[in-house]
Design a protein around this nucleic acid. Structure first.
Lengths: 239, 239
DNA sequence: ACAAAAGTGTTTATTATACACCCATGT
DNA sequence: ACATGGGTGTATAATAAACACTTTTGT
């Protein structure tokens, strides 16, 4: 490795340049199958014929990386204002067969129902995959997926991000199912509910669950103001 | 923002390219003054005359970003194998006055004593600054510093990274001082020691503190094997 | 003998865990 | 009436927090 330091120069002319891309692991939670899913598209490069890829694109000149990631999400899902978090770079010199492309991995959480509403309009070649049944992806996307999945699990335990995967109104059982599925653990129903009640970050909604063949459950929504109050008190969200 | 998606193309020719740099917030802990310090160098661009900068450089063709960050650290401090963590990108189009330069922020933890040993050899224009007395830096480096400082505090609470800021052998008081300085809180001595004892991640060393005008304290070192055992048991390091 | 920091236990409050039954609804 | 999931409380264990004195060393 060279020990030379380039930034001592007073001009940028001739400096080594790269193509920067963003790749986004789009997570969705399927309540029927109780599965965590990710959205993939067919890759178009000869080198990766038949393989699936994460949603990505090359950074454009007038946007930040986060804006690029949002643009990709908007284009591929029709959704705006989705939860998006930068994860890390993948910069091995050989990771792209056609040249030096360095990618920034993001993960995103979307309400799978909202997405389904947009599919018809978008005429997509995208598909949802159960995260447990992902084969070999293009590029280093399996590695990116693994890192993002790990990050999601970590965040889910310490930040109120899970609500981004559920409909706006949900039952406590749905919330518990989500946590159990993604974290691959089981929680005691009473303790889980007590924990939520003690943190006091949910608001009760008026309606109740519809069309179920048993006692309908109460509906809740995440209450951001209550969450801020929790944080102001120096407490943390934790499951 | 354009809604076009470029990655559908089957070639990279003509794609928008950028200069990628790494910038590293180098933290050191000064035991005498009980201060968290960072290492800065004089900026050389006309636009930032007299301002100080983080340690950085432009990514070269055959290295990863992490390798670039290590190269910068090696060049500027003479140290290898220092703790280094990727934090986040800074990609606003106008952040560099001479062109589109996107930077990857890292933070690094070094043993300030080791560094001092190397200063003579290196003939550096670098200086340590108390993190509480940082003025206006070049570029968006104040923002980068703030984000990295926040990240350090967070890591210090949940990961055994603090030991990278202390000499290999340290007293429990030194460790507590470090935590109190960086986190800006105070801990009860007995509770702090009990917590460390219960986690069982330290090994006792044979020697004792030298040249102090009071009862000399026992010396300890971080024990990575014990830490791994802790993790294997499903427990976490936390202060 | 004095100064200065090292080292050490107990009590109390808080939080986490384990565990089982009755309730409301649709069929 | 029965099947299905909804909803609730208590006892115990583990962890965190608050708090003060004796010990060892150098001067």
């Amino acid at each position: 490795m060279s020990g030379k330091i380039e930034s001592s120069r007073k001009t940028l002319s001739g400096a080594y340049q790269v193509i920067l891309s963003v790749d986004c692991v789009v997570f969705g939670y399927d309540e029927n199958d109780k599965e965590l899913k990710i959205l993939l598209i067919k890759n178009e490069l000869e080198e990766f014929k038949g393989k699936w890829s994460l949603l990505g694109d090359i950074l454009q000149s007038k946007e930040t990386l986060e804006e690029a990631a949002n643009r990709v999400l908007q284009f591929r899902t029709g959704l705006e204002d989705v939860y998006l978090e930068e994860v890390q770079t993948f910069s091995k010199p050989g990771r792209h067969p056609l040249g030096r492309v360095i990618t920034l991995a993001y993960y995103s959480l979307i309400k799978i129902d909202d997405y389904e509403l947009n599919v018809a309009k978008l005429d997509l070649e995208a598909r949802w995959f159960n995260i447990k049944e992902i084969g070999e992806l293009a590029f280093d996307h399996n590695e990116i997926l693994a890192v993002c999945h790990e990050r999601l699990k970590q965040r889910l335990r310490e930040q109120p991000v899970g609500f981004s995967l559920l409909p706006r109104h949900f039952t406590l059982k749905q919330l518990q199912n989500l946590y159990e599925t993604v974290l691959e653990v089981e929680f005691d129903k009473r303790n889980f509910r007590r924990k939520l009640k003690n943190m006091d970050v949910l608001m009760e909604k008026d309606g109740i669950q519809q069309d179920v063949a048993h006692r309908p459950a109460k509906l809740y929504a995440f209450d951001y103001d209550k969450y801020e109050t929790l944080i102001r008190k120096g407490r943390h969200f934790a499951i």
